[in-house]
């Protein structure tokens, strides 16, 4: 997978047939986002889901780059868990996801203080 995808040219299509599934990928500068989907799934929609994930990360991290994600991968996973469960999109509103993430980040902060003083 990591051998094939980076070699593909920008104009090529973002779907690769891989074993009995399909890989749908999207490249943002040096970052690749890859999703593995079933055969009967909508490839174009998968691209939109990736796009949505990246947009939200961009807002949460503020101009997301590779290092942001590496050094705070927890947050990246948390965002994904608010967007998708078990491969199914759970929320189609960007602002709703952002709201839920920021609440939970705040809760982490405040409970952090509580445990320190408790």
């Amino acid at each position: 997978m990591t051998a094939i995808i980076p070699l593909r040219k920008p104009k090529m299509c973002n779907v690769i047939e891989y074993k009995d599934s399909k890989l749908v990928y999207r490249r943002y500068a040096s970052l690749f986002f890859i999703a593995c989907i079933d055969n009967d799934e909508n490839e174009l929609m998968t691209l939109e889901v990736i796009q949505r994930y990246v947009e939200i990360m961009d807002k949460v991290y503020g101009n997301v780059c590779e290092l942001d994600i590496i050094f705070n991968f927890e947050l990246a996973y948390h965002i994904l868990d608010e967007l998708i469960i078990d491969g199914v999109m759970q929320e189609s509103s960007t602002s709703e996801v952002l709201k839920r993430i920021s609440y939970q980040e705040q809760m982490e902060q405040s409970t952090g203080i509580q445990t320190v003083y408790a």
Binding site: E74, D81, Q104, T111, G112, T115
Partner: peptide, 15 residues
Amino acid sequence: PSFSNKRLGYMAAML
């Protein structure tokens, strides 16, 4: 009981 630890714990469990 701490939310942040619980959150991390569940995330790790999922992964």
